[in-house]
Design a protein around this nucleic acid. Sequence first.
DNA 1: ATCATACTACGAACGTTTTCGTTGTCAAGA
DNA 2: TCTTGACAACGAAAACGTTCGTAGTATGAT
Lengths: 129, 129
Amino acid sequence: MTAKTPPRPTDAELEILTVLWSRGPSTVREVHEIVSRRKETQYTTVLKFMQIMADKGLVRRDEKNRAHVYEASRPREWTQRQLAGDLLERGFAGSAKSLLVGALSARKASAKELVELRKFLDDYEKGIR
Amino acid sequence: MTAKTPPRPTDAELEILTVLWSRGPSTVREVHEIVSRRKETQYTTVLKFMQIMADKGLVRRDEKNRAHVYEASRPREWTQRQLAGDLLERGFAGSAKSLLVGALSARKASAKELVELRKFLDDYEKGIR
DNA sequence: ATCATACTACGAACGTTTTCGTTGTCAAGA
DNA sequence: TCTTGACAACGAAAACGTTCGTAGTATGAT
């Protein structure tokens, strides 16, 4: 029996994951605090999402304390890989170039970011064996 | 009053759009023919989606002939920009590099594709004024 | 012991997405 | 003219995603 990979997070779930990625293990209250800055949301709404995410295997829950502590069950890079890979296939016919074109036309990249991108391409190429 | 931009396409809608992008204006039957190769789907399911998409403004419909002809109402690049931009912000905190890392770790790029990517970066840089 | 508070659990409503069956229409061939 | 096949329209069910209210429970302060 293989542990199955968690499904692609929904929009609301992704927002919560980003909080967990940046804060590390957090309580519902802490996540709600951050999320509700952007978007008016009830505490119990966030709680419900995090419960659902625990069911789906998107997060792990530590119930030792009264206020449960949640953490992303997969590292950020892993989930980002799923997301990027999924969109790459479904919307860009697998063309990484088209994906980058789309991204950089939606959001102008700074000179610094271009340097980063080139550097990554160099490193990536070295990694190919 | 501003003409509002069509909403982000759902998964099923995106699949249909990709067919329209590659084939150009097409009938429901033609789209169904392609889509049903990947995924078992009834004709009327595809029809319904395309009707919904017409309502949403995602596609335009030419009713002159008995078999209506549909075409994407926005060019592929436009929609791809929305998709990439949306994911970039929501899942990658705006970092194009992270998005590319995700994409290229999900799907190994060929040497040729790397050349394309570098070339695009060069062109893109020239375009900044 | 009681009370207020900070939690979790849960149910339900509502909207959206996906799916398909049924019905009605038109056009071409018998 | 009648039938058949190919099509659009529509309704509705089922699944999913989002949102929040209410109820229950544990903890610490009075």
